[in-house]
C-alpha cells in the first residue's frame, strides 16, 4: 500500500461524499467528475493502465458530460436537499449499516490475511486485444449490439414530442 494509493483513495472518497451531499446539482456534478477521475487514477496506481484510461475516457469524458447536460436541460427543477428530511437520515443510516457489515466481512475474511503478489500481472494492451478477439469475442459483439440499441433507444426517448395541435398545423400548412 503506497502513499499514492492512500492519497488517491482519500481524494476519491472525499469527492464522492461531496458529490452526494452538496446542495447544488452543478457542484455535485463537478465533485462527481473528481471522484471518477480519482477512481481512474486508482486503477492506474494498481497497474491496470488500459482500464484506468478507459475509465477516464468513458466516465470523465462521456458520462460526466451527459450528467451536466441533463442537469442543464432540466433547469428549474433544482432541489436542494432538505436538511431535516427523513429520507436523508434513514438513507445515511442504512448506508452506514451496509458499510459496517461489508467492512466486518472484509476484515474477518481470509482475504485480509493472504500474501498478496508484488508485481502486477501482465496486462499489455496487445494481450488485451488478442483476448478480446479470441476468448471474449461473443461478449464483445453483444456489448456492441447493446451500445447500438442504447444509442437508438436514448435518441427515441429524448426525442421532443410535438403537441398534437402543432403537428396538425404543420400538416395543413
Amino acid at each position: 500500500m503506497t502513499v499514492a494509493f492512500i492519497l488517491l483513495a482519500l481524494i476519491t472518497v472525499a469527492a464522492a461524499v461531496a458529490a452526494m451531499s452538496m446542495p447544488r446539482l452543478v457542484h455535485c456534478a463537478l465533485a462527481l467528475v473528481v471522484a471518477f477521475a480519482g477512481l481512474g487514477c486508482i486503477f492506474l496506481a494498481l497497474g491496470a493502465e488500459f482500464v484506468g484510461l478507459a475509465q477516464l475516457l468513458v466516465y470523465v469524458g462521456a458520462v460526466a458530460i451527459l450528467i451536466v447536460f441533463a442537469i442543464l436541460l432540466t433547469r428549474g427543477s433544482e432541489i436542494s436537499m432538505r436538511p431535516g428530511a427523513r429520507s436523508a437520515f434513514s438513507g445515511t443510516v442504512i448506508a452506514l449499516a451496509v458499510f459496517a457489515v461489508l467492512a466486518h466481512a472484509v476484515m474477518t475474511s481470509r482475504v485480509s490475511r493472504i500474501a498478496t503478489t508484488v508485481a502486477p500481472p501482465s496486462n499489455r494492451v496487445q494481450e488485451i486485444g488478442v483476448e478480446l478477439l479470441h476468448q471474449y469475442v461473443l461478449p464483445l459483439e453483444v456489448i456492441g449490439l447493446l451500445l447500438t440499441a442504447v444509442l437508438i433507444g436514448a435518441v427515441i426517448l429524448a426525442w421532443r414530442e410535438k403537441p398534437a395541435a402543432e403537428q396538425e398545423g404543420a400538416r395543413t400548412r
Partner: peptide
C-alpha cells in the same frame, strides 16, 4: 465508495443524483 453511492441513491431527491 459503494456506501456513499448507496446513501446518495437512497436519500437525494433529484433523479440525476
Amino acid at each position: 465508495l459503494f456506501c456513499v453511492g448507496l446513501a446518495g441513491a437512497l436519500s437525494r431527491s433529484s433523479a440525476i443524483l
